[in-house]
Amino acid sequence: MSFFSLWRHWARVERSRTPWWQWPNLLSLDAPLVAVAWLWMFSRFYFIEVQDPAVYGVLAGLVWVIYVVDRIRDASSSTPELRDRHHFHDRHRRVLLSLAALVFLASIVGFFLGVPFSMLWDWPRGYPASFAAFLQASLTHGMVVLGMAILFFFLGFRSNRGMDFALFKNGWVALTFAFGTAAGAHFYSYASVLDMITSFEALGFAFLCLMNLNAIELWEREEAAGEDYPQRDFLLSLPLLLIGGTSLWAALYWHDYHKPFYYSMLVASAALLMLDHFRVTLSARLLRVLADLALLLPLPIFWFWF
């Protein structure tokens, strides 16, 4: 089967009411999957040799809770810009809120009990961790991400649903998501949190997340309006070319050990750019799923490189 025939097959399948590939998005599982994947890549990038598996579960759980609560809150508003994911969360809000409460509690317990215990357990095998180091990391990495997440929820209560506010909110979501993901690996290093939030890697991943969110925002609004947004090239195409070119330059001229991370950003940005080129042949709901899948494409690079 050729590429174009496979593409047409996907276009026919996605016309059904709830195709199988939409369920991860409806259940808010796409964002936690992306977060866990990039946490693993950040761990390789930061030379983390000993890392507690509970960190992946805590990150996935907290990201899932934030997305579920945010979608239920959006579904409660009077905005007409609700999508399938919002209607699904509104119909099952009681079940999802109950599950979110349980997952949140399990994540908090796992962070404050499981993570420090495993750090002390791993200490004889070469990781010089202690409760003091754990508390210091919590007060730096944890508080920064927590503060950003609280401000994100505060922004959600704004009634302004215009494009300008949506782009501003997307920028803050991207920073919070990227720093929260990177903190799960940077947490184990001796570097300060300032080194993480000012690094090219964390900011580059945040920019990539912003392009993912902006692409979805544009595709959904353009499908509803029936026409292209006037500044779409400035908001999507040109930034994707910029991050792709910068990543290629960094991969060619920076340290060899860092090459897979920059190649990963190049592959993800190229995939988003290709999806935007084919946007007229697919619906916004399929494009949203594929946009998240584009952020998972770099996984094989790290898998075979290390």
Rank of each mutant, 00 (worst) to 15 (best):
D30Q: 13
Q51M: 05
P300D: 04
V68F: 05
I243T: 06
M143I: 07
D228N: 10
W7H: 02
D276T: 08
R8P: 03
W20C: 08
W10M: 10
L155P: 02
L287G: 11
L135H: 08
G142C: 08
Y190E: 15
A224S: 15
A11S: 12
H86P: 05
V193Y: 14
A215F: 15
L213A: 11
L208Y: 09
S199D: 13
A270L: 12
S237Q: 01
S2Y: 00
W21L: 14
F205Q: 05
D256M: 13
L33G: 05
L155D: 12
T18R: 09
R125Q: 10
L82V: 08
H258M: 12
L62Y: 01
F306N: 07
A291I: 10
D74Y: 00
F104R: 06
E217Y: 03
A106G: 01
A174S: 15
Q51D: 00
G110V: 08
S192C: 01
S107C: 12
G57D: 08
A202V: 15
A206V: 12
D90R: 13
L27W: 10
A60Y: 10
P116D: 07
I108C: 13
D30R: 11
W219N: 10
F112V: 12
V145C: 03
K259H: 11
A185Q: 07
A224T: 14
F4R: 01
E14F: 00
M119V: 02
R158Y: 10
F302C: 00
S159Q: 15
I301E: 06
R8V: 00
T18P: 00
